[in-house]
Write a protein that binds this DNA or RNA. Structure first.
Lengths: 306, 306
DNA sequence: CGATATCCATATTTATTTGATATGGCTTGT
DNA sequence: ACAAGCCATATCAAATAAATATGGATATCG
């Protein structure tokens, strides 16, 4: 059985005569008669009654005709779904976030834009630690990950730099400098404070940037604690264990006992934002997402410069 | 596009290598590669990524694979539905009844047997006057009709005689003979009574049989009323307008003011039962139904003789 | 590290199958 | 009775699918 048989069958059934159906199909009558007969032979069912003035569907033929239309409709559907998938307009995309990434306004903005542009993509979002995200990326459990810092071993991965943001200092609210109602403080003012830093088990994280900024400010910070995630550093600050430098967008996370102050540079330590993907990932959905990300980054910088 | 392309595509997708898929399909590798490429060209979509160790589905290919299975499932379904229809195991059948027919135990029995044997046939049942039923039959609104009497113009129709039943007399309950608690009475006892007979606008109906029986009993009945349906004669009997002869099965219709008495023949007037169908109706569903009817008639006569 | 095996792609030839042409038989309407 | 319309069959031509032969790329093994 081939689709040709069904196509011919439909034409004959609808026209009621083989000759006219052959015209409609752009062919001659005899081969059409043969193909219809071949279909009947394969099904072992008489589909038409041959009448002097044409042919007439049998009950069985009527049954087949109804289903034949449905079959072609389904094939059309399958084809357009396949094409949409190839164009990246349909399918699935899994994205990961490190805990602080969603605070950066760029991230929710690009997700929103992408969802609006490609509503047929089923988007899966997952939060996780940077190391875990990179593993998931390599294992193809996710297709992209918003992370802060560059990664130690970029082998096979590709990193897209996104707009970075300033860091601010998070102080316990009973800190001497927290009482003063100033908008910004120089980094050097915290030379004596214990620092709580975010450093993941392997790799640099934001750690190096902070140390470097302190050095540039003329002191070596005293590291009191290390926390595995940026968000958890705030808990330690709140407990009064020290101060911390966190991305400015974290200020949206209001927390009892924590006060934020901008840093009056230079040096102005910055928190990067990156999108990690697999190098050589051919997924069209991802390709579209990267387009959206690049566009959003351009728009974002434009907004910021205004 | 032909189904061949989809068949080949499924084989390659499932095997993961063209060579092995070709073996499974009983063909060589090069033509298979070509057909896959032809499918990709028609869709204008890359379905596989060629790898050194085989081929790998793209996202678009995965989409198509899922749908391809569904397409073949639907085709299988269409084919078996067509075959079932051809065998008369699936489809539709419309039957008509004259009002008194369903009282004859044969009729519900054969309907039940047929429904049990062919549950996939959607059965439509309709009641109507004999003339109306015959018209419906000719117009192909129904496929068969259970009627009592032979029909005037059997042109193009076929009549199957079914087990006939005795007629009984229906008396008003205040009739002199109704008071006497006898099981059966001779027809001659009603020589003086006004008769209510069933006669349809055209054609003989049961009328002729009744008249003939009376003549055989030695009198000419006095016709007081004619009623268009057998059942409505009972209303007239109940009203005391006369007596009527009705099929014995009508006794199941208990009616205030009506008493039934068997007739002590000879002569014993009989009520026939017939199944009318279109001559040359090729419907397999009808063919099966006629089989069931013939079988049921055989069983019925066997039961009666026991 | 070179040799080999594996696998897919391309080119060419062969085989199959589809479609076209010619023709005949049947039914209906004039 | 004859002509027109329609489908079936037989034969021939064309298109297309499949087979064979071969080459190129990449991993596997000695």
């Amino acid at each position: 059985m081939e689709l040709r048989h069904l196509r011919y069958f439909i034409a004959v059934a609808e026209e009621g005569r083989v000759t006219r159906a052959a015209e409609r199909l752009g062919m001659q009558q005899p081969p059409l008669s043969q193909q219809i007969k071949a279909l009947e032979r394969e099904l072992d069912v008489q589909l038409f009654r041959r009448r002097p003035r044409g042919v007439e569907l049998t009950d069985a033929g009527r049954t087949l005709l109804a289903d034949a239309h449905a079959i072609f409709a389904q094939i059309d559907h399958a084809f357009s779904a396949t094409r949409r998938t190839a164009r990246g307009e349909q399918g699935e995309l899994s994205l990961g976030f490190t805990s602080s990434a969603p605070f950066h306004p760029f991230v929710p903005r690009v997700i929103r834009a992408y969802r609006d542009a490609y509503p047929l993509i089923a988007l899966t979002l997952a939060e996780g630690g940077t190391t875990e995200l990179i593993d998931s990326l390599r294992a193809e459990r996710i297709d992209g990950a918003f992370i802060r810092s560059p990664i130690a071993d970029p082998e096979g991965l590709s990193l897209l730099r996104l707009p970075e943001e300033a860091m601010v200092v998070a102080l316990p609210s009973n800190h001497a400098l927290a009482r003063r109602r100033v908008a910004a403080l120089p980094l050097k003012a915290f030379a004596a404070d214990p620092f709580i830093v975010y450093r993941r088990p392997s790799g640099p994280g934001l750690y190096d940037g902070i140390i470097a900024a302190c050095h540039a400010a003329g002191f070596t910070p005293r590291i009191a604690q290390e926390a595995p995630r940026i968000v958890s550093t705030l808990n330690l600050v709140s407990a009064g264990l020290g101060i911390s430098l966190v991305p400015a967008s974290l200020q949206r996370m209001r927390m009892d006992g924590v006060v934020y102050r901008r840093l009056k540079g230079p040096p102005q330590p910055m928190a990067p934002l990156n999108l990690a993907t697999r190098r050589g990932d051919t997924s069209a959905a991802l390709r579209r997402f990267l387009q959206s990300v690049r566009q959003a980054a351009k728009d974002f910088r434009l907004d910021a410069s205004v």
